[in-house]
């Protein structure tokens, strides 16, 4: 449930759905996100520039020449979005992952810290039904959960200067995929050859907030011969 609306400067508002990071809270955020997007498309509200869902908040940015925060807040307060169901477009996506030690950069640390062997770790990762809480930081970069408690780990004490694109990392109950070569502190357990982000495609990101993800294990040979569409 929408608990609180606050201003973020003069051209943004934060819609707060509570403190808990759970799928239920996040689904509320994503439902509300769909509602604002649909209202924008149907021209029921003007001047909306960006909507950014995260675990428990939706940030809405608007064009101050077209709408003021009080008008937007009023629109939200008088709208009934309680009956909205998550749109059907939220889909299940299978993502190939190669756990070969060449790519699973932190597998040794993982084995030590979780006291599980390599096979148990990958088995646990593969059987998880991941939920995409949000996309961001950099383009196309998903934050997914929830991992089994057995795999909970903290961030690396010293982040890597460069994590290769396609690396799959875990921290606490979350799993992410690096969509660009970038610095990072997540524990890397494998690599996907699937290109999650391509700005030149009509829909640049394969994943959207609210989607489900299942990983599928592939061999190094399959990874190397993988062709993106």
């Amino acid at each position: 449930m929408l608990k609180k609306i606050s201003n973020i400067g003069d051209c943004g508002i934060a819609c707060d759905f509570g403190d808990e990071i759970s799928k239920d809270t996040n689904k509320e955020v994503i439902k509300f996100f769909s509602f604002v997007q649909d209202s924008t498309k149907a021209k029921k509200i003007k001047g909306i520039l960006n909507c950014t869902p995260s675990y428990n908040k939706l940030i809405i940015n608007f064009d101050l020449e077209k709408i003021k925060s009080s008008e937007l807040i009023q629109f939200i307060q008088k709208s009934d979005y309680s009956k909205i169901t998550l749109p059907e477009k939220n889909k299940l996506i299978e993502i190939p992952i190669c756990y070969d030690e060449e790519f699973a950069l932190d597998i040794k640390t993982l084995e030590q810290k979780t006291k599980l062997n390599f096979k148990e770790i990958t088995k646990e990762h593969l059987k998880t039904d991941f939920f995409v809480y949000m996309i961001g930081f950099v383009p196309g970069h998903p934050f997914m959960g929830d991992l089994n408690k057995k795999l909970y780990l903290n961030r690396l004490e010293t982040p890597r200067v460069r994590v290769p694109k396609g690396s799959v990392g875990i921290v606490e109950k979350f799993c992410n995929i690096y969509t660009f070569d970038s610095p990072g502190g997540w524990n890397i357990i494998g690599k996907t050859p699937l290109e999650l982000f391509n700005i030149n495609k009509k829909n640049p990101s394969i994943l959207s907030p609210g989607d489900s993800v299942q990983f599928k294990s592939i061999t190094k040979k399959e990874l190397l011969s993988f062709k993106n569409e």
Binding site: G9, D19, S54, Y55, K57, L58, I59, N61, G136, F137
Partner: peptide, 29 residues
């Protein structure tokens, strides 16, 4: 908990020194 970022936000990391996020800011932080 990471949340959406808006241009002009002033964030303060653990070292206590502010950073103003500008036009190419990360989308969440």
């Amino acid at each position: 908990k990471s949340e959406g970022i808006t241009k002009g936000s002033i964030q303060v990391p653990g070292d206590g020194q502010p950073i103003i996020l500008l036009s190419d800011h990360p989308t969440i932080g």
